[in-house]
Design a protein around this nucleic acid. Sequence first.
DNA 1: CGAGTTTGACCCGCGC
DNA 2: GCGCGGGTCAAACTCG
Length: 120
Amino acid sequence: MEEDKCQVLFPCCSEEKEKRKKKKEREPKFAFQTRSQVDILDDGYRWRKYGQKAVKNNPFPRSYYKCTEEGCRVKKQVQRQSGDEGVVVTTYQGVHTHPVDKPSDNFHHILTQMHIFPPY
DNA sequence: CGAGTTTGACCCGCGC
DNA sequence: GCGCGGGTCAAACTCG
């Protein structure tokens, strides 16, 4: 039923699905934590928010962002850590293919104190 | 007006 | 097989 509905409304749906499944190419991913009062860290790139979801064991929601640069499908997630409101966990996925056009001294300062997660 | 945000629905993998 | 948790889409809305 659901599949039928999907195909009726969007005939190209199954095609896209296969395409997506075949694209197993996993982008490089890394995460780090920062101490910051604000969760919107301006790193010089322009981000468009495309989702927000609540995670278990965490009273704070997680936000999903995408780089607005065309052809640049870099994604990032931002989430506060439970128990410590001052800590923000940021996860980047993918690599930027264009230079930063808006240098931020604040971000550079943040970079000096970030912790990168080994698994990524 | 248009780019960016909000927000609920939709999708999908995984564990029970 | 089903329900849950996490990720994404897209229509409506907002604000400069």
